[in-house]
Design a protein around this nucleic acid. Structure first.
Lengths: 132, 132
DNA sequence: CGGAATCCCATTGGATACTG
DNA sequence: CAGTATCCAATGGGATTCCG
C-alpha cells in the first residue's frame, strides 16, 4: 500500500537537502550534547545563576556547564548577564528563540516519554534474540 | 503561537526526572548520532535495501550504515528483512513507531529550518564580539 | 550484496587545580 | 562566585580488509 497513511512526506521537510542536511545538524548536534537539554529545561523555569544551574543539574561539572552555556549563548538561545559585584554574579535566561527551542525540545521529550517503554521492550526482545 | 509568555511549564514534561532525564536521553542520543536522522528520512520515503540506503546518503560508510541500522532495529524503529538469495538481499523499512518518530524528527527539522538563519546571525555576532 | 573485524584518530567530556 | 587551564579516559566514527 505504498506506506499509505503512514507516509511522512519527507520531501517537504528535508527533501532539497542533498548532503549537509540543510544546517539541521547544527540544532541536532546540540540535542546530542549531554547537558544542553537539561540546561534548557532548567532555564525554562526562570532566570538562573551559574551555581544555581549547577546545583539544579546533578552531575554536571563546572567545565561542562561553562561550555554548554557558552554554546547556547553563542547560538542566541540564552542571554548571559554579568554583574560586576563582589562576589561576581552572572545570570542566564532563555531568549525568545530559546523559549521557542525549548517548546520544540519539550515536544520531543514528550514523544520520548510516551514511547520509552515500547522502545525498552523492543531492546529487550532484540537482546534476547541476540544472545552474544 | 506567541512567544510572549516566559513560562514553558517544564514540570509537566521533565519535571519528575531528577537525574537521568527519564530515559529521554536514549532518544536524544540517537538524534545526536551523525547518520540516524538521515537514515530515518530516507526510509520515510519507502522500503530500502542496504546499498540503496548507502547510495542515498552520501558520505556514510558501510560500517556506520550497519551500526546505525542495527541501533534503529534494536529500538524497534525499523524492520530488517533478509532474503536468502544470491546475492543476499536485505530490506529496511520504518515500523509504526519508527514513522511516529520520523514525524517528531520532522517537526524538529522544521523548527531548525525556520530558525537556522537567526541562529547563524547570532553566531556571527557572537564571534565578531569575541575576536579570539 | 551485506555485512563483520580491525586499526586508528578526532572529539567529548570528566577530574582536578588555579584565578579574578 | 564564576569561571579558565590542563590532563586524561572514553566514545564516535572513518578507512581498510575479509567473509558467506
Amino acid at each position: 500500500m505504498s506506506v499509505g497513511h503512514t507516509a511522512v512526506t519527507p520531501q517537504a521537510h528535508l527533501g532539497p537537502c542533498g548532503d549537509d542536511d540543510c544546517g539541521v545538524r547544527d540544532v541536532l548536534d546540540r540535542l546530542g550534547d549531554k547537558w544542553t537539554v537539561l540546561v534548557i529545561v532548567e532555564l525554562s523555569k526562570g532566570v538562573r545563576r551559574f551555581r544555581e544551574l549547577q546545583r539544579a543539574i546533578p552531575g554536571i561539572s563546572q567545565r561542562m556547564l561553562t561550555v554548554t552555556t557558552r554554546r547556547l549563548a553563542r547560538d542566541g538561545m540564552i542571554s548571559r548577564t554579568a554583574y560586576a559585584t563582589i562576589p561576581p554574579q552572572v545570570e542566564y535566561a532563555l531568549t525568545d528563540i530559546g523559549r521557542s527551542f525549548a517548546r520544540a525540545v519539550f515536544a520531543l521529550s514528550d514523544w520520548s516519554r510516551d514511547h520509552k517503554d515500547v522502545i525498552a521492550e523492543a531492546r529487550e526482545r532484540w537482546d534476547a534474540r541476540n544472545t552474544d
